[in-house]
């Protein structure tokens, strides 16, 4: 009976970058959601919850940045630790589709959070621009440009990676 928990967890995990912090953020968010449920007036329940999760994650990140930890660096570093040598043959080296999973994960982790969250909500949660706008509290047009810029950067990172690997 925990509504939208997977979506909430996935967003948190991609925003804060590790399992422990993600679970803390989700737990905070759900307790908060219980407390403020009275202020929920029958709008889209998933968007309402995810907006709380996002807010909690950003608060957590802000605290970390104050402690001198640059988030995306930390996130990328943690992925580096987990990174296994990836020697999968890659015949169409330039095909983004064949970028290794690790490379994609790292590239996504290195994106600024506002691009990353838009991509996660769009590509993994299959949300419409309108829903994303509601969760991230920006106009729909901003969602469109964030997605466009996020995809562009991701592409640049992935193709640069591929080029480096092949030379």
């Amino acid at each position: 009976m925990l509504p939208h928990l997977d979506s909430a967890h996935n967003l948190a995990r991609w925003l804060v970058g590790n399992e422990q912090d993600a679970e803390d953020a989700v737990q905070d968010s759900y307790l908060r959601a219980l407390t403020y449920f009275d202020s929920f007036h029958g709008e889209d329940g998933r968007a309402w919850l995810l907006a709380i999760v996002r807010h909690t994650c950003y608060a957590q990140l802000r605290k970390k940045v104050q402690h001198g930890l640059q988030h995306s660096e930390a996130l990328a570093a943690s992925l580096e630790l987990e990174m296994v040598e990836d020697h999968s043959p890659d015949p169409e080296a330039l095909a983004l589709r064949n970028s290794s999973r690790i490379a994609i994960e790292r590239a996504l982790a290195q994106l600024p959070p506002e691009f990353r969250e838009a991509l996660v909500l769009r590509e993994m949660e299959g949300m419409s621009y309108r829903e994303i706008a509601r969760i991230t509290d920006v106009p729909v047009g901003t969602v469109m440009s964030r997605l466009a810029r996020g995809r562009k950067r991701l592409q640049d990172m992935l193709t640069a990676k591929v080029r480096k690997e092949t030379t």
Partner: peptide, 9 residues
């Protein structure tokens, strides 16, 4: 590519 990245449940 993005949808090949993990969706953390």
């Amino acid at each position: 590519a993005v949808s090949a990245a993990p969706r953390y449940r």
